[in-house]
């Protein structure tokens, strides 16, 4: 694994470049992964419809605009990068019902984004069945040396996954972060109200190599050794 200094494409697509199993990838400060050579954008854990699900299940009312905001940011990113392929790495919807109860306008916006691109839905634990929106639903995906799946598997090599919503604390600030070692890359959640799991949690320290790197997201992508 090697990586280079941060590159600034423009504000939205600022990121930190890494070479991972032969692929040159940019961990974007905007919590998405950009594979420039393959014009592929990877986003994970959008959790669309979370507030709706929480309200439905617990009666605790979260305000309803997180889907809106997540889609806003996805639109901006797609407009800036024009990917030919988009991989949604699981937990795109908070659950199946959330997928089907997407408002008409949100659904239309999502379909407009999908228009003219190869759109791949990797199954997550929250949304095992593919949503009836078009695109290709898959359990997992291989592209060359890279494997895309929702939950990291302990023995995998060249694997890109999501699920854990990793977060890292630096100078008292907690930020969603990419975690990277020689075998795997775990993506931060892209969704607006997703919580997170500290990189120091046993689930993550067990998965990640001793020499793992964390790339904090936020105003810019900031690499540092992964706190354990």
């Amino acid at each position: 694994m090697t990586s280079s200094t941060a590159v600034m494409l423009n504000n939205i697509s600022a990121g930190f470049d890494v070479t991972f199993h032969g692929a040159r990838l940019t961990a974007l400060a905007a919590r998405a992964l950009w594979w420039g050579a393959d014009t592929t954008l990877v986003v994970s854990d959008l959790h669309l419809g979370k507030s709706e699900r929480v309200a439905r299940r617990t009666g605790v009312s979260l305000p309803p605009y997180e889907t809106h905001d997540t889609l806003d940011r996805l639109e901006t990113l797609i407009a800036a990068l024009s990917p030919t392929r988009v991989i949604c790495l699981g937990d795109t919807f908070d659950d199946d019902l959330a997928a089907s109860s997407l408002t008409t306008s949100d659904r239309a916006r999502l379909q407009a984004l999908m228009q003219g691109r190869h759109w791949i839905w990797v199954e997550g634990n929250h949304d095992p069945a593919p949503p009836a929106l078009g695109g290709d639903p898959v359990a997992e995906l291989r592209l060359g040396a890279l494997a895309f799946r929702h939950i990291a598997s302990p023995d995998a090599v060249g694997e890109i996954s999501g699920h854990y919503h990793p977060k890292v604390r630096l100078r008292g600030q907690s930020r969603p972060a990419f975690l990277l070692d020689k075998s795997r890359l775990i993506m931060p959640a892209f969704g607006t109200y997703t919580g997170g799991l500290r990189s120091t949690d046993a689930a993550l320290t067990a998965l990640m190599d001793k020499r793992a790197l964390a790339i904090l997201t936020g105003a810019r992508a900031l690499p540092c050794p992964m706190p354990r």
């Binding site: 280079s4 200094t5 100078r171 020499r211 900031l222 690499p223």
Partner: peptide, 20 residues
């Protein structure tokens, strides 16, 4: 300050060499 600290951590951890 975060950037400085991240940079310092990269240096002391030796991971900075990897990031060339």
């Amino acid at each position: 300050l975060m950037a400085q600290e991240a940079e310092a951590l990269m240096q002391t951890s030796g991971l900075a060499d990897l990031a060339q």
